[in-house]
Computed example of a mutant assay.
Amino acid sequence: MKSKWTRRLLFVTATFVVLWLAVPGAPGRAVAAKAHKFAIILPGPIEDADYNFRGYQVSQDIKKRFKIATSYSERISPADAERVAREYIASGFTIVGFHGGQFIRIVKKLAPKFPEVNFIMESSGKGKVPKNVWNIHRHFYEGFYPFGVLAGLATKTNKVGVIAGIQLPDFKSSINTISDALKATNPKAELVFAFTGNQNDPVKARQTAEAMIANGVDFIINMVNLGVYGVVEAAKKAKRKVLVTTFYTDKTDKAPNHFAGTLIVDFRPPFAKAVGGILKGNRTGYVPMRPGNGFELKSLGNVSAKAIAKTKEAYEKVRAGSIKLRLEMKKVRLAK
């Protein structure tokens, strides 16, 4: 039978251990970090080799980098995302990431209801977020700016096109900075743009590209996902040489004679920064996703050496912050 003094000693010892584990930076904190589980919710199939595949890569990178359990759910619509997130939380997941700006409202709804859970969202701005949310702010307008330089130096007809799917603020602001870069590089060049209404419809994208090409466009900057394959088909069938760009993943091998460059969009670096911050005890934070941190240029080709050099130079200036870019997200206003 334990004596009265023994019971008191055990109580004091247990209390000390609890308090020690609560101290930031204490050795026992490493055990708590290992208990974290990360899940990411994706809007489409990871087989797309594009946007959703990039989200899948995040789950694999987090698992390898931080040695914690990870999971992902694909083909999840905004209407179903809350249910999926709640299921993850009920299963003990402590960090839930959402791949896409369409989930912001859901994050802001769930965060106050589950204060013990960490949420990561992607957005188009800084904004105010709940105390347990990390915001990854995608600066697409910075990433696309160098393509305006590339197009201005590569076009032979002085007609450049931009094809996007949905009228997202990110795309509107990117068209504006492309317009600024094009005007500064080649004042004679004209920029036209179109929204097909669908990011992944290659038929609509092909028809839009064909119409642009018929009107003299010989350089098309893509802001569609799987729709890019329709644009490529239109370029291949054109009577004159038509160059195209793509983004998210490099697709140069699909049409090596027509692709002029890729804007690589890699979500692993910003998500790693957010998860790393959470594991250190930072419940909220802001990560700008921009050239140098998630955005990179790759596979510049089918253009002159001068065009490649000037495009890389523009990218480096944007990355370094030595160029102040216009940020206008509500409406497309082409440079005059």
Results as ranks from 00 to 15, higher is better:
1 M>S: 14
14 A>C: 10
18 V>Q: 11
32 A>T: 07
33 A>R: 08
33 A>K: 12
51 Y>S: 04
54 R>A: 05
54 R>I: 09
56 Y>E: 08
57 Q>P: 02
59 S>V: 10
60 Q>P: 02
66 F>P: 05
70 T>S: 01
77 S>Y: 04
82 E>Q: 14
85 A>S: 10
87 E>H: 11
90 A>D: 09
98 F>M: 09
100 G>C: 05
102 Q>V: 12
105 R>S: 08
107 V>E: 00
108 K>L: 01
108 K>S: 10
119 F>R: 04
120 I>Q: 04
120 I>S: 01
129 V>D: 06
135 N>T: 02
144 F>L: 15
150 L>P: 00
154 A>L: 01
155 T>M: 11
156 K>E: 15
160 V>D: 10
160 V>M: 11
167 Q>G: 13
168 L>Q: 03
175 I>C: 09
175 I>L: 11
186 N>D: 11
196 T>P: 01
196 T>V: 06
199 Q>K: 15
200 N>S: 14
202 P>T: 11
204 K>Q: 14
210 E>H: 13
218 D>Y: 00
218 D>R: 02
219 F>V: 14
219 F>S: 07
226 L>E: 15
232 V>N: 07
233 E>P: 13
236 K>C: 05
239 K>H: 05
242 V>C: 05
243 L>Y: 00
247 F>R: 00
260 A>G: 01
262 T>K: 00
280 K>I: 07
280 K>P: 06
281 G>K: 05
284 T>M: 13
288 P>M: 15
299 S>N: 15
301 G>M: 09
304 S>H: 08
306 K>Y: 13
306 K>I: 08
308 I>Q: 09
309 A>R: 15
310 K>S: 09
312 K>D: 12
313 E>L: 07
314 A>L: 14
318 V>C: 05
325 L>P: 00
326 R>K: 05
334 L>Q: 15
334 L>Y: 13
334 L>G: 10
